[in-house]
Every structure is written in C-alpha cells, then in structure tokens.
Amino acid sequence: MNYQAPTTLKDAVTLMQGDTGNCRILAGGTDLLVRLRSEMEEPDTVIDIKRIAELDEIAEEGGGWRIGAAVSGVRMAEHAALVAAWPGVVEAMNLIGSTQIQSRATMAGNLCNASPAADSVPAMVAAEAVARVVGPDGARDVPVAEIPTGPGRTSLARDELIASIFLPAPQTRAADAYLRFIPRTEMDIAVAGCGVWLALDAAGTCTAARVAVGAVGPTVRLVEDAGAALVGSKLEPDALDALAEACSAAATPIDDKRGTAAYRVHVAGVLARRAAVIAAKRAGDTT
C-alpha cells in the first residue's frame, strides 16, 4: 500500500487520476481503517486529505455553511454558529461512534462510505445539503441524496472526491432534528434513523417539511408523503400519525443482526414523530 498526503486539492486529484489500482481517500479513516484491518479492502493507494488546508475548514458562504471534507465531527460540534443553524445535522454527525470517533470521523466520509445506516445522511437530505464533487474536469455540485446509490456504492467517478458539503442558509422559524434508534445508549449503528426539517409560520403552522429515513432501505430516502403530512398542521396527533405512517410505509428494510424488518418499519415512524416535535420546538424557538 502506498500512502500519500497531498497538500492541495489539485495534487489529490492528480494522484487519483494517475492511480491505476484501487485508490481510497482517507479523511477520518474511521470506516476505511476498519476495512483495512478486517482485510475487506486492500487498496494500492491511500490519499490522506487532512493536510489540504481548504478541506479542513468550516466557512460561511451566503449565509450557509461549507464544511470541508476533512472536518471532524467534534469540530462541527464546537462551531456555535453551525450548531445554531443546523442543529439536526450536527447532532446526527455527533451521534456517530464514540468521543474518539468524533475526533476523526467526517461528514463527507460518512456520506462516501455509503452505509444505508449513516447517521448524518438523513439529516443532510432533510437539510437539502449539496456535496461539491471535484475531479479532473473541475467541480460539480450534487445533492447529497444523489451520492449514495446502494450499500457501499456512490455516484462518484473513480477519480472524483467530495471536497465539501454545503448546508444552505437557515430560514427563520425553521429548524431540523435527527433521531436514531440503537439498542445501547452509544456505540451502535442505527437500527433506524430519521431526519426532519420543517418551517413554521408565525402562527406555528407548518409551511414546509422534509423528512428522510435511514437504515430502512438500501439508501437513505426522502419521504415526500411524510413531509406533506406535516404541512398545514400544527403537529397535531393526526398529523404526527400520518407522518409516522408515511415513514413506516416508505421503509423497505431487511432483517439483520441489528433488528428485524418489522421492528425497523415501526421504529422509523416513532422516530419521525419524535424528531418532528423536536424540530418544531426548535423552529418556534428561533423567532
């Protein structure tokens, strides 16, 4: 294995382009090193992007936030303005693994690992986050929802990498939340997860909502019916029931060591309901 630590994005792309074998990007490494260890993966080249300064920053951009691909979860948690703008995305990121994992794991890495159970992805999809993909032909912006194409698979070309993720400018009386279910209180992979973004009017009526579920299908899924169930409501029980039903209906999970399919279907709805209430509370608090 060949280890490279370029200091510019251009060098990183050149390295990827010139590599004929199996080349992997190393950001936080919290997934990649596990795969190396278990010999599931034996790359010829590993490109460490943490020495590229522009990928290692959280930058304000038109009221939104651009988060570099090398930025760890703890750096996001420590960024007060980012937390205020996108509390759900940050809490989703911070749910991943232990304190130790948080020092290393990155949101772009969580996305590119393409696990159906990735915690940050439903939150990003609900937030309409956009990934900036860089390759030999330059940069292109891709909605986060379009990056994973299946378990372990992404829409990136072999010589492309994600340089950053952009979270749009927050709206007034709008907020997000993310919840997941795990058997323990920490350290597990999500059995089901749900990210909710919603906006309220001055009277507290929901004017827009996006709901995404994770770990209940091959990829994270934006559930349009679930968002629609909230719009026009003040999150009354009926609306929350409809939200939960829509999320459960959208779930197409499998039975595995982490939970049964039936359980995941049920819990996806429970989480949606609880996350929506949190998001609405936050949205109300922003005024």
Partner: peptide
C-alpha cells in the same frame, strides 16, 4: 464489539 453489544 460493534454488534456483540456489551454494556457501555
């Protein structure tokens, strides 16, 4: 230890 879940 990820899925053999001893108490944390």
């Amino acid at each position: 230890f990820l899925d053999y879940r001893i108490p944390v």
